[in-house]
Design a protein around this nucleic acid. Sequence first.
DNA 1: CGGAACGTTGACTGTCATCAATCTCTGTGG
DNA 2: CCACAGAGATTGATGACAGTCAACGTTCCG
Lengths: 222, 222
Amino acid sequence: MLGSRVTTVRARRSQQLSLSTGHAETVYIVRSGLLVLQTTPPGKHRQLLTPLYPRDIFRPAFAPPLPGIALTAVTPSELWRLPSSAFETLLGADAALGQHLNRQLADQHARTILHAAMVGGLSGEERVASFLIELGLRIGAPCANGISFEIPLSRADIADHLALNPDTLSRIMSRLKARGLVAQTSRGRAVVPDWEGLCRQSPLAGALAALHATADRRHLKS
Amino acid sequence: MLGSRVTTVRARRSQQLSLSTGHAETVYIVRSGLLVLQTTPPGKHRQLLTPLYPRDIFRPAFAPPLPGIALTAVTPSELWRLPSSAFETLLGADAALGQHLNRQLADQHARTILHAAMVGGLSGEERVASFLIELGLRIGAPCANGISFEIPLSRADIADHLALNPDTLSRIMSRLKARGLVAQTSRGRAVVPDWEGLCRQSPLAGALAALHATADRRHLKS
DNA sequence: CGGAACGTTGACTGTCATCAATCTCTGTGG
DNA sequence: CCACAGAGATTGATGACAGTCAACGTTCCG
């Protein structure tokens, strides 16, 4: 019934999606790929505020009016775009669907709060551990030596997400590698040989598992 | 029509509202007062994650499953409590009302992201300035010497909200006072003689104004 | 093979947390 | 009304952690 109002949008790596289409607000729903909401204040470091995974819902109204705010694709992505009026119809149309969407929105809200708790309360090392745990839960797959996953973000991206300096991030990663908690196979790919050990590095591991573990990844919840 | 399912709840200062009522999730709507979502991880500092102002909506699902998470009243507060099923009926029942509630939820989401940007990207002094701006926008009133408002939180509360140490916060406040950007009349009450000057201390002043200025406080937006 | 982007590492600097001593409010009881 | 006690706030000294700058190493591209 809403088919005609839904557009499929494809975004290349680093492509930015417009947030302010003026009067008619649009809603995006991520189908595949990874995007981030980022801001670049003048004279300050860029910040990656919120990662968006498949099934996540994004409305421009979620983005505070910060200078240089933009929704950017980290990996090639596919999204649905629909007018917010259509989205709100969806929320009300079918009770089960509406409940599901509300649940999804609440989850995303909780993830944002969790990120604030991470950045505000944890040391650099704990933040990096938490980030690796999040990635492992989201895109990790068990392999011979442990849990393996692609790291789709560059060093600078990760640093900007964790409120760290790229140099500091590099040091922390070296320390984690020295302690055998992570290993790097190739550029942009990591293996976690000791998942439990990594989880012990982050006081928020439990909350991360609750919010990021999907049905097919419960094996990581330990 | 939903009257029978809405309960009015009163909370005293420091009173905690239960988050996990088990199966039937409840939704709170703040009528008056000020509350915060806080967490107290074992062996770590408490964190005040999100302040809740009148008209704000809170669902337990917004709270990530952190250790010691609780919704706490900072000042005596009054809330409406209703089952989440009733809330979702509200969302769908009336298009205008649903749109308004969705807009409110999006605003709160944006505020949470903004807080993460504050804690992650600003120096201690900028964070304190941002906090004072937020309070001024929310509860400030013009008076003879500038904008005046009550500070409902204790020093330790503010520090936990801004991811600062209470001692450091005290130092920063002293510096701001020395520069004439804030003044204290009595305990727990502040006056901002130079609103513009204070806004210049925070790179996020504009975003704060957009998200916190209510219709009757546009005079502060400058 | 060369160049550019990215990552690593060391030395130094600045900011903020910690600890401890002192001071200031506020409420209470004599 | 004053003295006192206790909590909270201020301030100084010190140390740990993360940011900055700079040099060097790696990877990936033409």
